[in-house]
Amino acid sequence: MKLKNILLTTLIMASTAVWAEPSHRVFVTNEKDNTVSVIDTKTNEVTNTINIGERPRGIGLSPDQKLLYVAISEEGAIAVVDLDTLKVVKKLDAGEDPETFDVAPNGNIYISNEDDAQASVIDPKTGKIIEVIPVGLEPEGVAVSPDGSLALVTSESTNMVHVIDTAKHKVVKNILVAARPRGLAFNSDGSLAYSTSEVGNEVTIIDTKSLSIIKQASIDLPNSKPMDIAVSPDDKTIYVTTGRGNSVVVLDAKTLEMKANVPVGKRVWGLGMTRDGSRLYTADGVSSTVSVVDTATNKTIKTIEVGKFPWGVVVDD
């Protein structure tokens, strides 16, 4: 059965990416000093600092984990870093004001263009923008489903999660969520997606089959401004950074009940997790640090000085 084969191939391709040998490093964009800090996860020390370009924000890895992609917003580009040499090897045109992105299993980059109310799809092999998809105002978070069939984009000022069918590159559903939606994440099989609403102080669970909201809950903490999300490998727990709440909240992935609140640095946005789910790395913007959280004890075990205003985190471990 053809359809089945295509889907299976996609699934297998998606899963092979996960098995590439990790380099045991964390990469952090420093928005205000135009660098990426490289952290060795064995020592949790900064080993390198890469001069990346103006106003680095979103960050991600190619499916084979050989390349690092960094959105350099002021240059309208994505810087491509060779992870063997830690050198910028090229810059891809990414449209106006690229902010965050996700890399699909087939390698395409889905990126939000904040000032242009659109999402762009870049083929990094050719360096071409292959599609531009109009979305709501101030598009922000992007996540591609594990099988690559869906891309979600939040629009902060129109309060929506836009669902894009990646086969057609068309918006197929617009889901209204609480005010100023930001971060997005899928669970491991892609059956659920999570979104955060920064101003509404909510987390939303979206069923990706019916494309409807199945749960919404606010975070019961003063000053909480939920941002980035990570889902544990067993899909039982989600971790959400709270911005000016200066913490990572640990929520039950089904009920959204708060299980713990882990203090980290100030104005925490970006969040990355090791593949085994044992460690979290947070970008504490105002503190200019990365906090390392042990998820077994829900405690910050180390605070690492990085560049100015760390924004995004990606973990290759």
Binding site: M1, K4, L7, K168, K170, K173
Partner: peptide
């Protein structure tokens, strides 16, 4: 119907229609 086939059908026929 297998789950995959169902998913495929949903992708093809239901989602594009807003």
């Amino acid at each position: 119907m297998s789950k995959l086939k169902k998913l495929g059908l949903i992708v093809l026929f239901i989602w594009p229609q807003i």
